[in-house]
Design a protein around this nucleic acid. Structure first.
Lengths: 123, 123
DNA sequence: TAATAACTGATAATCTGATATCAATAGCCG
DNA sequence: CGGCTATTGATATCAGATTATCAGTTATTA
């Protein structure tokens, strides 16, 4: 990434304003309001560059494609709506998960919690 | 599923003896000890039938393909080793996850917790 | 503004996981 | 056992998600 283009700015802007993890097609949809002729390939290219630069991180979900969110948020988890498939942020964390002891000798480095249900706009 | 075949028995047997969620290729690997000429298509067919009959359930993981485990276990979560990518069962559950309140108006139906780290055989 | 090279958009190609095809095999029944 | 037909294995095909290609466009610098 050497030049500043409206396409890349749009991708980053969309991730900032939506403030939740977005899939590449979701990014495309929203960003086309800013750059009408934006193509999916450019979205993928921009994501790749932002991942390398560390401005964006990927969020993996069970049975869903990769989504991407702005780097630098504090530890948080996610809520997936089973109707609209939108992913939301959930602040807070139960902490050490002592209630969930792994088998003897296993080293837990990371925990991921995903809440599933129905979001407020689908309720 | 109308006939009893050694291929289908082998798939179910592997899931029972391994006692952790397995991917189709993992099932194939292990089951070929029981049925040497077993093919991947048959593994997929057997899984599909066991899913329909309810003998097997699928386990989705972030960024990983589907895995399958024997139905009827009690509520539990999983541990994924980041080195060998094997998935293990973790008994217990923190319960209601009150420490993780979703946004106002959101209805939580399911929670999934995935622990990641290093398993005992990779440590 | 002109030159240059990075960037873009449209689409083809690729990759991976899962399914369909089809001839050969093998349960199950009489 | 013999015949019927579900099942199998090898492989082709498909579906989707991501990446490569390449001609045209545009940001940058002098």
């Amino acid at each position: 990434m050497e030049r500043k283009t409206k396409q890349r700015e749009a991708v980053l802007q969309v991730l900032l304003t939506e403030n939740r993890p977005l899939s590449p097609p979701e990014i495309l949809d929203v960003a086309q309001a800013l750059v009408p002729r934006l193509g999916i390939a450019t979205v993928y290219r921009a994501i790749k560059e932002f991942l390398e630069s560390g401005d964006v991180v990927s969020v993996d979900l069970p049975g869903e494609g990769q989504r991407f969110e702005i780097m630098g948020k504090r530890h948080h988890h996610h809520f997936l709506c089973r109707l609209c498939r939108k992913l939301y942020e959930v602040n807070g964390c139960p902490g050490t998960l002592d209630a969930l002891p792994p088998p003897e000798g296993f080293l837990v480095e990371i925990h991921e919690i995903l809440l599933k249900g129905i979001c407020v706009s689908c309720a």
